[in-house]
């Protein structure tokens, strides 16, 4: 079976690198994009098995990208892990994330992210 392909979209180069290293070490093939638009283009170019998506990004933020994916018949099935904004202790509960979101991501991880947690969720969702 071919390697699973995960796309990581975040404007922080170092964080993208860190997530890529971690997932790479676990046998995933990792693609990288650095803003929302680039992320969407990359998805259209090569369909990933899962997307790790940052919320706060230039051009298109993570919520917008997620909504576009979940509204599209073609990409609706791709699991999305959203890296939520820094801040509220509550952002580690699902309550606030659902609030105001029409199309939910599949999982949420609050920044600063625990890479092992991300890897666990990737394994669960793929």
């Amino acid at each position: 079976m071919a390697e699973k392909y995960v796309l990581v979209v975040d404007d922080d180069l170092d964080l993208v690198e860190a997530i890529a290293t971690n997932l790479g070490a676990r046998g995933y093939e990792v693609g990288k994009a650095y803003d929302g638009e680039e992320g969407l283009e990359s998805i259209k170019e090569r369909r990933p098995d899962l997307v790790v998506l940052d919320v706060m990004m230039p051009k298109k933020d993570g919520y917008q990208v997620c909504e576009e994916l979940k509204n599209s018949d073609e990409f609706r099935d791709i699991p999305v892990i959203l890296l939520t904004a820094v801040g509220s202790a509550v952002s580690s509960t699902s309550y606030t994330h659902r609030d105001g979101m029409t199309n939910e991501a599949d999982e949420y991880v609050a920044k600063p992210v625990d890479l092992d947690r991300v890897a666990e969720l990737v394994a669960e969702l793929i």
């Binding site: 922080d12 964080l15 860190a18 600063p112």
Partner: peptide
């Protein structure tokens, strides 16, 4: 300030974890 501190922090923490 908090955003600008936590973003690099998140990156460094990820790297340290690896």
């Amino acid at each position: 300030v908090a955003h600008d501190i936590v973003s690099p922090l998140a990156a460094v923490q990820g790297q340290l974890q690896n």
